[in-house]
Design a protein around this nucleic acid. Structure first.
Length: 520
RNA sequence: GAUCCCGUAGCUCAGCUGGUAGAGCAUUUGACUUUUAAUCAAAGGGCCGUAGGUUCGAGUCCUACCGGGAUCACCA
């Protein structure tokens, strides 16, 4: 027996793990586990074997086992991470956790050849168990082990959360890993210890899968376009810059897919979509991560009216597929994604909410109304942005149920087609849900002369110091000169959609690995 | 970028107007062949985020910095 009490030397704070290959100081638990590892090897046990033929998930057994069908479960093999151990001398119970949940295992010295080995196992180790299923006298469905195999010796301790129920059946969690920084930095630990957060990410995956299926069924093609771009475009945002050594040129990480996808419509595809990471070099907060996922789709021969109907179908489909209903609970609200959604123009929505008709007003008049409404304005912004500010302050927070806001000022929408009947506006809509924007779409501007003029206006803004204004992309303009058919385009912020459908208020809770400052 | 709050054992946290660092769980040793927050007995474990300062004396007070969280600003 090793004398494990002799190790009371250096300890290391749990959160200060460095990436260096050599750990300078091991705490007592880490030292002990290394000694156990050596002892296991000395006993001839391979602590890192190659495979284990498991037959069941924990949930399969718990769902299907009944006392009168016990013979069906005479020979099961389960595997997972040890999460709790109760040793009673010559017999022990422990729980293992697999992808689907937890199940209890019972081992007895009489039944297991390597019972002695078990004293060298720890919480966190991964084991395989072969045996039969039974119900303990306390009523818990349990695997009675005939064979116990170590599959992975864990060298670093994991925080142990214990869950109990009070007399009312309310679950209480003790000693959970609650520190958000640790949870984000070591998401693998978070997933082990707070296994319910897995559900958010499973749902995220299903949302994206449902979207793909919806598009694929309609014959639209999933495509990939460059992440590294010589000229960035398609949105108003600051980019990340990187450098290609062989070409000796700076490249930008994409801020949007838009301009490349439209090139593909020029090339003859009639429906293309892309689900991809975009990168914006801006602030981080509850709703912004520097890299985020968006879905953009472009369909030829359609306009934004068609696109609104498509979005209604899409979100009805996705919510039904993923949640089984179009009614989505979010906090106190129940949001209905059943079609149709309300459609109202931006100016109409402002008039409805404030009583002010902003049609045809000049900048001075708009500023007067803004200050009357208590909306603070940057003195540099023009008429279009003033309208947007008024909208954002007075209308947007009230848009809880899905609402299409249509017909945005032309200055804010350099890639959208001018409105067919409303001067100064574009055929653009955004979909607002629960006070936030989750989709943005337009009838795409395909007049190459007008597009050039609009991009040159952006360039002028840029020259005056607006570093988010767009850059003139000559190749994109050339593509438009070749000819883009009438096209409707849509972008959906996937992370925000996932937040909405998983009842999360922080983007960090729908990203496995949110951006963090480097750990020191 | 601004403001506020937080940083004490592996985890969750207590530590009052400054006076020798605490609890529960986890860990170690012993007992225990149907336990389940297992139980019972004993034990080990702290650069009190970092660096200065005030003080006879700082986990506690002051300053700066680092890290985190929240709110606001920015960001379609």
């Amino acid at each position: 027996m090793l004398s494990r009490q002799e190790h009371c030397g250096g300890t290391r704070h749990f959160s200060q793990k460095s990436n260096s290959p050599m750990k300078e100081h091991l705490n007592d638990q880490e030292l002990r586990r290394r000694e156990e590892l050596a002892e296991l090897r000395h006993m001839g046990v391979e602590p890192y074997p190659y495979a284990f033929p498991k037959t069941h998930h924990s949930s399969d057994i718990l769902a299907q086992f009944a006392d009168d069908n016990a013979e069906v479960f005479q020979d099961v093999a389960v595997a997972g991470r040890i999460m709790a151990v109760r040793r009673m001398g010559k017999a022990s119970f422990f729980h293992i956790q697999d992808e689907a949940g937890r199940i209890q295992v019972y081992i007895r010295k009489d039944d297991i050849a390597n019972y002695e080995e078990f004293r060298l196992y720890d919480i966190g180790d991964i084991v395989g168990v072969r045996g039969f299923v039974f119900r303990t006298k306390m009523g818990e469905i349990t695997v009675h082990a005939r064979e116990l195999v170590l599959l992975c010796k864990s060298l670093a301790p994991i925080p142990i959360a214990k869950e109990t129920e009070d007399e009312h059946g309310n679950k209480m969690v003790h000693d959970a890993l609650a520190d958000k920084e640790l949870r984000y930095r070591q998401r693998y630990l978070d997933l082990i210890v707070n296994s319910h957060i897995r559900d958010t990410f499973v749902r995220r995956s299903r949302i994206i899968t449902a979207m793909r299926r919806f598009f694929d069924e309609r014959g639209w093609l999933e495509v990939e376009t460059p992440v590294l771009q010589p000229i960035y475009g398609g949105a108003a945002a600051r980019p990340f810059v990187t450098h290609h050594n062989a070409l000796d040129v700076d490249l930008y990480l994409r801020i949007a897919d838009e301009l490349y996808l439209k090139r593909l419509i020029v090339g003859g595809f009639e429906g293309v979509y892309e689900i991809s990471k975009n990168f914006r070099n801006e602030g981080m907060d509850r709703t912004h991560n520097p890299e985020f996922t968006s879905m953009e789709i472009y369909v030829a021969y359609k306009d934004y009216n068609w696109m609104m109907s498509m979005v209604e179908e899409l979100f009805s489909y996705v919510t039904t597929q993923v949640l089984g209903t179009t009614d989505v609970k979010f906090g106190e609200e129940v949001i209905s994604f059943a079609a149709p959604y309300r459609r109202i123009s931006m100016l109409g929505a402002i008039q409805e909410r404030t009583g002010h008709d902003l049609h045809g007003l000049d900048e001075a008049e708009l500023r007067r109304i803004a200050s009357e409404l208590g909306v603070e304005l940057d003195p540099k912004i023009g008429a279009g942005k003033i309208i947007d500010e008024i909208f954002t302050e007075t209308v947007q927070p009230h848009l809880i149920q899905p609402t299409f806001i249509t017909d945005y000022p032309i200055e804010m929408s350099p890639l959208a087609k001018s409105h067919r009947s409303e001067p100064g506006l574009t055929e653009r809509f955004e979909l607002f849900v629960n006070g936030g924007e989750i989709a943005n779409a337009f009838s795409e501007l395909n007049d190459p002369v007008e597009q050039r003029r609009r991009l040159e206006e952006q360039a002028a803004l840029r020259a005056r110091g607006d570093d988010e204004a767009m850059v003139v992309d000559e190749d994109f303009l050339h593509a438009l000169e070749i000819g883009l058919p009438p096209t409707a385009g849509l972008g959906v912020g996937i992370d925000r959609l996932v937040m909405l459908l998983t009842e999360q208020v922080s983007i960090r809770d729908v990203l496995f690995f949110p951006q963090m400052k480097p750990d020191k």
